[in-house]
Structure formats: structure tokens, C-alpha cells
Write a protein that binds this DNA or RNA. Structure first.
Lengths: 129, 129
DNA sequence: GACAAACACCGGCCGTCAATCGGTTTTTTG
DNA sequence: CAAAAAACCGATTGACGGCCGGTGTTTGTC
């Protein structure tokens, strides 16, 4: 099951939960909803959807839900990247990687050196096996 | 400008164009449209949309358009990865790239060597500036 | 135990966008 | 010039996220 597509508010809520840990709808509404002038009901719908999408877990505490992330920010990103990256093995994967390296280098020249040292690290880790 | 979201038919058309190079709407309809029992008009709308999204380039040959990919399959994938991975510059970018390299290495151990030689290439290209 | 507050839950409306097609205009060609 | 081919235009439909009002249910309080 690939990660579902997320709307703007859904993403904002996810980021908020990552930044703040376990929260309830009221807190989300206070910090995200009020500035956008949306009702708490809208926030409820959104966390409900995120829960259905298995991106938030929740637990009833007395009569209200407490929401927490189901995946860490890093796990989420890794899965998103893996979904979109597709096959990374073999010759086909090599071309994808080449294009990515090219992009990274163009985005920031220092990335070349960064990647180079990561490769060094990975190589030495491999030695140690 | 991040890559736009694509529908199912749009993706199929993109893949078709990657596989077949320069094509016209008629050929796409013959190979993709007819099996789906959709009219050629639907195919036209779709390539038109892909052109507006700058994923297909086109050229008028007599009165008909010839369509060709604006990005290679690999460039497309790399951009998709970059979009979802987030910022590629600065310190944040370093983490993102590290995660990708890690992913690539885990997918296929030989990727380490592949990336290493790409870095060599990129470095020598930089020298030449 | 009644009551008000807090909250979940349900259903509906709106906007956006892909998919789809019919109809019209423009271009090509026999 | 007439028929065919294709682009072009406009409309409809279906998903889905964002948004909210109304209704029920739980809870804490007097």
C-alpha cells in the first residue's frame, strides 16, 4: 500500500503532529485552525481522514481522542521516496540514480562533495562486514 | 515548479511516449485508446494537458502534432524523488541525500560503485569549467 | 439524576482536476 | 471544391480535499 495523496491541510496537520507529539484536535485547531479561520469541525474531519489513512494513531482518553503519528517524519519521507523512486536495482535503477545525482549537484554544488564522503562512509562500512 | 499530479491515463500516455519516442495522437489512440474503448478526443485532451504541463513537447507536422517527451523517464523519476524528498540544498539537503544514498545502497550494493563513478564524472566535468 | 459543555460522528456543499465526449472550426488533400 | 482529418472548445461526470452545520454521546458538575 503506497502512501495516499495528502491535501494541504492534511500535510500541515501531519507536520504539526510530528513537531508536537501526542495532541488533540483542540490543540491542532488552536495552532493551525484559528489562523486559517476554520472551525474545529474541519480539523476533526482532517485528523479523522488521516487516521483512516493510517498516518495517525489515536487513543481515547476519557471522551476525546489523542492523536499521535503512526510514522516518524523520516519513515514517512523514506516511504514516499521509495514509492516514487520505484526500481533502484540494476541498469534501470542506475539511470534513475544518475539523474538524481545530477539534480542534486545542480541544486547545490557542494552536494558533490557531500555525496562523495557518504560514499566513502558506505564503502568503509561495507569493508567491516 | 514541482511536477504536477498525473491521472492514470496521463501516466499511461507518458509511458507510451517514453517507450515509442515521437508519436501522434492517432498512434496513442490505436495502442492505448482503443483497448480502453475511449475516443480519440479523450486522447487529444490528455496529450494537450500533458503539453500544458510541460511534460510533452510537440511540433506541428503539416496539420497534426507530433509529441515527444520533454523529460526522459529517468529525469522524470529523479524530479519526482526530489519533489517528495524536499530541500536539496544546505544542511537539510545533506540529510535528504544521505537518506537517498542509503536507500539506493540497500536496494543494490552495486549502487555504491555506480554512484561513486558518477561522482568522478561530475567532478571532472566541474574541473573543465 | 438533570444539565450544560465538550466532543465525535454523519451528511452535505463547494472547488479543483482528470477523464470523457460531442460539436465546431480549421487544415489538408484528392 | 468537397470530404476527411485533426485541432479546438465547451460541457458533464466522478474523485477527493476542504469546509461546515446538525445530531448524538460522553462527561463532569451541582
Amino acid at each position: 500500500m503506497p502512501l495516499p495523496l495528502l491535501g494541504e491541510l492534511e500535510l500541515a496537520v501531519l507536520r504539526y503532529v510530528w513537531a508536537n507529539g501526542t495532541v488533540d484536535a483542540k490543540a491542532i485547531h488552536r495552532d493551525l485552525g484559528a489562523p486559517r479561520e476554520i472551525t474545529i469541525n474541519t480539523v476533526q474531519s482532517t485528523v479523522e481522514r488521516l487516521h483512516r489513512k493510517r498516518l495517525l494513531i489515536r487513543e481515547r482518553v476519557s471522551h476525546a481522542y489523542q492523536y499521535a503519528p503512526a510514522l516518524s517524519r523520516e519513515e514517512f519521507r523514506a516511504r514516499a521516496v521509495a514509492d516514487v523512486a520505484g526500481e533502484l536495482r540494476g541498469a534501470e535503477g542506475a539511470r534513475v540514480i544518475a539523474a538524481f545525482v545530477e539534480l542534486a549537484a545542480r541544486a547545490d554544488g557542494e552536494n558533490i562533495d557531500r555525496i562523495a564522503s557518504m560514499i566513502e562512509l558506505a564503502r568503509s562500512r561495507r569493508e567491516g562486514r
